[in-house]
Design a protein around this nucleic acid. Structure first.
Lengths: 193, 193
DNA sequence: AAATACCGGTGACATAAATCAATGATTAAC
DNA sequence: GTTAATCATTGATTTATGTCACCGGTATTT
């Protein structure tokens, strides 16, 4: 159950086995069936979550009922409504499972305990945040300057896994385009082979 | 010179005066005239920078020569090409001054020294990163789901300062729209008063 | 195994925003 | 103080992408 978490952690900091045992006690395992919610808009987000197995998505729903996907989180990715998690105000994002998934959750309180008892985790989450910022910046720059086709090509290049595990209409939503446009882009790319 | 930096730091962690003195030695003051570059694409980004006075922008230039602004950094904001700064690979962003500016720079090496000698800075930059992620997420969600007009309205609401200090065409670029479109949006908003 | 929901593809049409081009207005440079 | 950049505005036109409607295929449910 904890393999993905500790692999993730050991990429950035080293832990003694005592520290690892302590950390384990602070995370809550949870399973989610496909389509089940981890968080619904307007609820308070109580957990920071790492995906051990499966896929989660975080997304907003606009006035027209259209979903806009902020994040597609595969194994080893962290997901939360960060604003709600930190402030305990109502969430603006929904989070649910794209596949049956296994998760590890940590509350804000437990996270504080983790920082206090194993200060190395300050560094871990600093480095994790850095990586996160990099990927958000790349995505935003792409969103500002790329055509729909280029955004799709960038995705196929950087995250080919996503294409197999996530339905097309979610890929489209993640790219900020409609399912129809994505369908036509794929057709075009085949034609130009 | 260091007022903005230490105000920024003390919002998140507390420092003794010894620590403050040590930190001061690790930053390099620099002034930049309007339009001067701090970093050019394809150079290696040597510094993480905080703006003490003035405004910087980071941006990419596409094949057509159009600029796309990732960040507009007012006093107290941190700016760098994070990928280049961390990896010492060539930068993809340009950074230059929108107004005459006063900056404090820190190298990767000095930053490591800072973490080593004052571990509290791990926490500081973790918290800074969190804030950064929040704002990138908000901007990306807006970019995925808002019309040009709504993106502009969100900006006027959240960062009214920017409108006075930065020319319209840069605001447009920051929003991912053309200057012409922004000009028409403003006209429309006035009309509907 | 029939019924139902989900998913991707496609045509016809609509529209937001980009592009191209020209004109003042303001600011900076000489 | 004249010249030259820089900046914002506006009209005409084009284009990428969205919207709406429908279809067939494949899972999923009962």
């Amino acid at each position: 159950m904890f393999e993905v978490l500790f692999q993730n952690v050991k990429d950035k900091i080293s832990l003694t086995s005592d520290e690892e045992e302590l950390a384990k006690t602070l995370f809550i395992p949870k399973k989610l069936k496909k389509k089940q919610y981890l968080l619904q808009q307007d609820d308070v987000c109580k957990y920071l979550t790492i995906v051990e197995k499966g896929v989660l998505r975080s997304y907003t729903v606009d006035d027209a009922g259209t979903e806009h996907i902020l994040q597609l989180a595969l194994e080893g990715h962290w997901v939360t409504d960060m604003y709600s998690f930190l402030s305990q105000e109502p969430a603006i994002y929904n989070i649910d499972a794209v596949e049956d998934s296994e998760l590890l959750l940590i509350t804000n309180r437990s996270l504080d305990e983790l920082y206090e008892k194993i200060p190395k985790f300050e560094r871990f989450f600093r480095l994790l945040g850095q990586k996160n910022i990099l990927s958000l910046q790349r995505r935003l720059t792409g969103s500002l300057s790329f055509t729909a086709e280029d955004k799709y090509l960038q995705l196929t290049k950087n995250f080919p896994d996503l294409l197999n595990r996530v339905p097309q209409h979610m890929i489209a939503s993640y790219l900020g385009i409609t399912r129809e446009t994505l369908s036509r882009i794929k057709k075009n790319l085949l034609k130009d082979h």
